[in-house]
């Protein structure tokens, strides 16, 4: 146990020395890995933010039915009857033109406009919710054809469009992540290969005096994982900095629309996943690199 700990500690320390011995090339490889990782991670962060934005707006999607202004009381109650007997409708609310006008009057911004009107320009309206959101589209079309219904509006249309765009974005980001994950493995493969070449003699001698492949691999695996981890941290810094600058601009935009909205950062769990993923991909690249070298050595005898 002592010996095992000592071996691992020694391998780890010699790895740190290796990184420190060539600070510039280490720094550059870490930056390359960081930039590679920040791309898909950044896209995921933005998608996630858009998702939370769309979910605050969507709620339960509704259809607004606007009656034509010349519809009589009877014609309105005829529509009400139809809505009651329609099995796909879960609930509906009637907003009379008087109620609608009163709502506008209470609103500070519109009260002046409303009081200057000679007659009520607003129609009677029903706000209808469906039991299943998949029925919305059909209901929307049918209700639009009901007598004295001037206009049926599906409020959730743009939300659903956004949702499907976001789904597409997720697929694209997933593909990009896989590609760049491979890129990370290849980058590590190459940087570790260069390290191996500078230590060719050491590897040869170690093998001659009885080192197992595990022993030879160990410091390089540490190097690959550590480089991956540092790259992951670099990506995290890039994303945090990017969000910081974007939030400055978004704050201005949000003020114009008098809403509060800010991009949220990577939470601790997501950050941990990023770090674990980047170090394991680095480990994998290093493993391939050393294994290839050892395989070449073995094939001579």
């Amino acid at each position: 146990m002592m010996a095992w700990l000592s071996i691992n500690l020694h391998a780890f320390l010699s790895t740190l020395r290796k990184l420190a011995r060539s600070p510039f090339s280490s720094f550059f490889s870490i930056c390359v890995i960081g930039i590679t990782l920040s791309l898909p991670t950044g896209i995921f962060v933005i998608l996630e933010n858009l998702e939370s934005l769309s979910s605050t707006f969507s709620g339960s999607p509704e259809i607004s039915l606007f009656m034509s202004r010349d519809a009589s009381r009877d014609q309105v109650s005829e529509i009400e009857k139809r809505l009651k007997s329609e099995p796909r409708v879960s609930r509906f609310k009637f907003v009379s033109k008087e109620d609608a006008l009163a709502q506008f009057r209470n609103d500070n911004e519109f009260s002046d406009v409303v009081s200057s009107l000679s007659r009520n320009p607003l129609p009677d309206a029903f706000i209808v919710s469906a039991k299943r959101s998949s029925d919305l589209e059909a209901l929307h079309v049918e209700m639009g054809k009901w007598p004295k219904v001037e206009h049926a509006q599906l409020d959730s249309n743009w939300v659903r469009k956004l949702d499907s765009i976001l789904k597409l974005g997720h697929v694209a980001a997933a593909i990009l992540s896989i590609l760049l994950g491979f890129a990370l493995v290849f980058i590590t493969f190459n940087t570790i290969r260069l390290q191996i070449l500078t230590q060719k003699d050491e590897i040869e001698v170690a093998k001659l005096i009885g080192a197992t492949n595990t022993f030879i691999r160990r410091p390089f695996l540490y190097l690959g994982a550590l480089q991956g981890l540092a790259g992951g941290i670099a990506a995290w810094i890039i994303i945090e900095a990017g969000l910081h600058f974007m939030n400055g601009a978004i704050l201005e935009l949000a003020q114009l629309y008098s809403t509060r909205f800010a991009l949220s950062n990577l939470d601790p769990k997501e950050s941990l996943i990023l770090f674990m993923l980047s170090s394991s991909l680095g480990w994998l690249g290093a493993w391939f690199s050393v294994s290839r070298h050892l395989w070449q050595l073995d094939s001579y005898s």
């Binding site: 002592m2 095992w4 071996i7 003699d201």
Partner: peptide, 25 residues
């Protein structure tokens, strides 16, 4: 000889012990 030029005399001789996981004390 196959000595490791970036390691001291002590470290060169230490290497086989390290490889065979000899008690570090």
């Amino acid at each position: 000889h196959k000595l490791l030029s970036n390691r001291t005399v002590f470290e060169n001789v230490f290497l086989p012990l390290q490889i065979s996981a000899f008690d570090p004390r």
